[in-house]
């Protein structure tokens, strides 16, 4: 760190890295907020989204702007299917049983993709743009665009939650399902919406990861630990928390190369979790315990 520019660069890199973690983390917390269980299948949903978008873009020639919503719909639908077919009957057995089933689900989804597409790495049909440079600091227009997509998706969710009837109902169920039920909100319907949106955001984020790297059946699995860390750091069940947590983890992982060693990238995510939980067991923006 000889130069303030180096620090700015690392922070910027961290924000870029964090913005692709943000949507899967928000999806994870969105499902958690309503259903109160950690859905580890988020990695599988991310991979499904990445592949759905790839088929639309690379096979059928759709532009990225159209392929991304499709990634959202496809992974949302898969998440909903997984919830209804596999997880819902297990809710009575407790949140941890559902969590374990979701671990199995992510392996199942990974192998569904593997069965259909094989292990080959694939890239989207997209030119790769050179960085812009500002006084020695480099920003990539494509990553900036990805960050933009992520922010648009996250903002859409905030608007939905904050200003629509559905959003109010979702927040009501998240706060107190029993009370919401009494007030005439159907918790099952809300749960389905939350799972669809959560899975969809994971898939949307999965495709953004794919645009930035390349995709294979392990795409979601590679980022899943960072995504969990982001969700926990921000506070389980907190949507703004997930966004903040993703930035903390993204910046932390890029800092690892400078402060620790690049070979210990994942360790920073874990250290971030420990640090935050020691002082705030409910996470940075988590409200309740």
């Amino acid at each position: 760190m000889e130069d303030w520019r180096d620090l700015v660069q690392v922070l910027l890199n961290g924000v870029m890295a964090g913005s692709v973690l943000m949507l899967p983390a928000i999806g994870f917390n969105c499902i958690f907020a309503v259903l109160r269980y950690p859905n580890f299948a988020i990695a599988g949903f991310a991979t499904i989204g990445a592949f759905a978008g790839w088929v639309a873009n690379a096979v059928y020639g759709w532009p990225i702007g159209l392929a991304l919503p499709l990634a959202f719909l496809a992974s949302g639908a898969v998440a909903l299917l997984a919830e209804e077919a596999a997880f819902r009957p297990l809710r009575a057995a407790g949140p941890l049983t559902v969590a374990i089933a979701s671990v199995a689900m992510t392996i199942l989804l990974e192998n569904v993709i593997r069965f259909g597409f094989g292990n080959d790495l694939r890239g989207y049909d997209l030119p790769i743009l050179r960085d812009w440079r500002f006084d020695g600091i480099r920003v990539n227009p494509q990553q900036l665009q990805n960050t933009g997509y992520a922010i648009v998706a996250a903002a859409a969710l905030f608007l939905l939650l904050g200003f629509s009837r559905l959003g109010r109902a979702m927040r009501a169920v998240a706060d107190n399902p029993v009370l919401a039920d009494i007030k005439g909100v159907d918790p099952n319907r809300i749960a389905r919406v939350a799972v669809f949106i959560g899975g969809g955001l994971a898939g949307f984020g999965g495709m953004l990861i794919g645009i930035d790297t390349s995709i294979d059946p392990l795409t979601g699995f590679r980022v899943v630990l960072s995504v969990f860390a982001a969700a926990v750091v921000g506070g389980l069940g907190s949507i703004p928390g997930a966004a903040l947590g993703a930035m903390v983890v993204g910046v932390g992982e890029e800092m690892a190369g400078v402060v620790l060693q690049p070979a210990y990238r994942s360790v920073t995510a874990f250290l971030a979790i420990l640090l935050v939980l020691m002082f705030r067991p409910q996470g940075l923006l988590g409200g309740r315990n």
């Binding site: 949140p95 941890l96 389980l236 360790v267």
Partner: peptide, 16 residues
Amino acid sequence: LRGDYLAIVTLGFAEV
């Protein structure tokens, strides 16, 4: 820590 936090923290521990 509550169970769900614990699950993720222990997962991270093994990776460390």
